[in-house]
Design a protein around this nucleic acid. Sequence first.
DNA 1: CTAGGGTTAG
Length: 530
Amino acid sequence: MVHCSSSFVYGFTRRFFGKLCSKTASIYGALESLSTVNGSTRKPIKYVLCTALSSCGKTRNWRLGIQIHAFMIRSGYEDNLFLCSALIDFYAKCFAILDAKKVFSGIRTHDQVSWTSLITGLSINGQGIGALLLFKEMLYTQIMPNCLTFVSVISACVGQSGGLQHCSALHTHIIKQGCDTNNFVVCSLIDCYANQGQIDDAVLLFAKTSEKDIVVYNSMISGYSKNMFNENALKLFVEMRGQNLGTTDHTLCTILNACSNLALLLQGRQVHSLVIKMGSERNVFLASALIDMYSKGGDIDDAQRVLDQTSEKNNVLWTSMIMGYAQCGRSSEALELFDCLLTKQELVPDHICFTAVLTACNHAGLLDKGVEYFNKMTTNYGMSPDIDHYACLIDLYARKGNLSKARDLMQKMPYDPNYVIWSSFLSSCKIYGNVKLGREAADQLIKMEPSNAAPYLTLAHVYARKNLWNEVAEVRRLMQQRGMRKPAGWSWVEVPFHLVTRLWDTYLAEGDALPDFSSFPFFFLYQEIA
DNA sequence: CTAGGGTTAG
């Protein structure tokens, strides 16, 4: 049987290995009987071992894999390069990267595969830098990288600081070596460029690829959607369907994502019908994309229906649902669902789940609840809150008017406040007319994104709220001096005198002194109502 | 016809 096709052996290994093991009481027995089934020759066992190790990696079967390793040693296959590469792959896929490294360093003469296996292994274990360094080391040897090596090392660049520079450098290398027509390489390059926000480079690469397959299309669609070019993603999907390439679950997942981003409920429903036609309703990736699409499209009940029909629920699905309720303003249902799952012990909440819960509190302005969950996360679950959790809590305090407490938290948290935090803080400063903190927030925002006009306008409102018209004028002068363009929907208006008093009514807090008419500049910022 | 590779979810 070992002379049959490898896919047969693979299938065989997966389906019958377990049975053999239980019958013979040990993996050794199973392997012995496999090697003697087809007669006297013992040689083919190494093919079986190789395929078995591969499937142990794919199914993350750690127990079986290490027994095969032991059997390898016992049968004298320890130095077989093919088996060692398979071992590296197996250990890496079971997240035992140290063991993978150990096998690698035990190899006397390496080949492209052994190098590539460890580079891939480092990359999937989150050690992108390590993968890059190993690749560099490989370049000093006689062994040339091949397409597969490039694929691995490019994937390792994704999410690295300076990943773009590495990626461009690798791209040059790839063109020199003539690997740039390989679709696998093209996909990883498109993915890498798209993840670094270099969508133009990705588009260029995509356009240059002559024989695009499904996955190349999928990568490009996903790249568009990641960079919020959702319409382009949809257009490309239509084009892809015109090419009769077919679609995969990946495609539909990405398209649903684009529909969610655009809140396109109708188109999302059409994709849902495609999911059903393809018989992919059981795919959890699609289920979560559907839940997300329905909740962002405003149909939370259909989102719930998708969840109900999914047989195997996981953290992602539950979190999508909680987030869905939170975002559509049904916060109490979000919290009820979360609490219910906790008591039934159907959910071990992780960071993102707590983000959804805190978002629900934030949406409903439930400060006490928010603090309670925040504390629960740290004390009951021993998690260290990440910046998004702090952002929810800070915004909760700020929107309740406790600006100093919010500012305090921003200082005490172990992260630097990001753009989102400062801008939500600034809006609270506007609501409560806190000039001092508002000015600070606006300064920070302007420093972070000098070309964005929004903080100038909000700051002007903070001043206006306190009748500091000279400061309002100063903001306008600064904007003109710095060549700022107004964001769409905002206008400077010359205010006729009879409207001035009406604006005052709006902005004047009770008990404030009447403004000095002579200092009023007769123009005002206002946001057009869509 | 022994190994290693690309795109998907909160």
